[in-house]
Design a protein around this nucleic acid. Sequence first.
DNA 1: AAATACTTTCAGAAATATTTGAAAGTATAG
DNA 2: CTATACTTTCAAATATTTCTGAAAGTATTT
Lengths: 165, 165
Amino acid sequence: MEYSEAKQKFIHAWGTLGSNWGINKAMAQIHALLLLATEPLSAEEIMDELQMSRGNVNMNLRSLMDWGIVKKEHKVGERKEYFSTGKDVWDLARQVSRERRRREIEPILKVLEDVQSVSGDNKKSVAEFKKVTSELFEFSSKVDGVVEKFIKSDQNWFYKFLMKL
Amino acid sequence: MEYSEAKQKFIHAWGTLGSNWGINKAMAQIHALLLLATEPLSAEEIMDELQMSRGNVNMNLRSLMDWGIVKKEHKVGERKEYFSTGKDVWDLARQVSRERRRREIEPILKVLEDVQSVSGDNKKSVAEFKKVTSELFEFSSKVDGVVEKFIKSDQNWFYKFLMKL
DNA sequence: AAATACTTTCAGAAATATTTGAAAGTATAG
DNA sequence: CTATACTTTCAAATATTTCTGAAAGTATTT
């Protein structure tokens, strides 16, 4: 398969994967492009390769930096900004886990905790509510624990852990 | 907190969580409602509670059944159909993992495998492409393995596994 | 076989998310 | 200070997703 075809295929697949998991497709595609790049890219280069507007590229690069997976770089003697992403897959997974934990797991845990104080006339419904939400809370806390462990661990731990399974 | 308020809060949070993970909000909310219900609900009851159209409820119930997390039931002597969801959180997690594996992990693994046959003039780019995609492939395969294990395991295994961490 | 009680479908409407591009902003160089 | 080379912003346009509701479909009862 020709390089350009493979590249297109990968960028497309990465974008689709992102979409399915609630991540802006453009953002995922920019990330894919940076993953494949042999050196940092300028906004202009990204615009050209992905056929996106300047505004869109800028906005999504900012999001990627918010997620902590893209860094801004400056080449000496150049005014333009360049962008790069870490190539370590494991680091990437950790970083994404960290952010999703903060943005999604923690808020839902908070809600599940809050609603534990439920009360009402319909005893059966209230009992069911408490049962379901407390089980969800416990399960989510455990998942949260695993994710936290994963985030704080080093790559070695992770591969050892995979071995044990 | 009053039952109705807690219920609203939970349904809302579940819907938001779903959205963030690429799941239709209505679908997640219907699921939340069924989780809290003390007995199977009819389409009409869901429409009323969630203020959704018949078509929307019907469509999303179908999706939930496709995901294997909602079942259709019939009450004796009644023509209407009723719907229920399993209340076991762990089962739910397994089922969702199973489906996402099939729908997302497997396709991306296939793409990553396909593009390994890349070739081209630009040696450096091709080398980088192979390096990144093969590492992604290996990582994803490992994740796939963990998910598979999780899906096939029983609840007991899972809790033991959590302990070990 | 017609009426009844339901479920399903789907074209169009509405809502939401994404993208554009031009104007405004910022920093450096001359 | 002004021009230049860039980046950022954001209102409007576009694209995508979701939702509605009425019509069509299906199964049961009379």
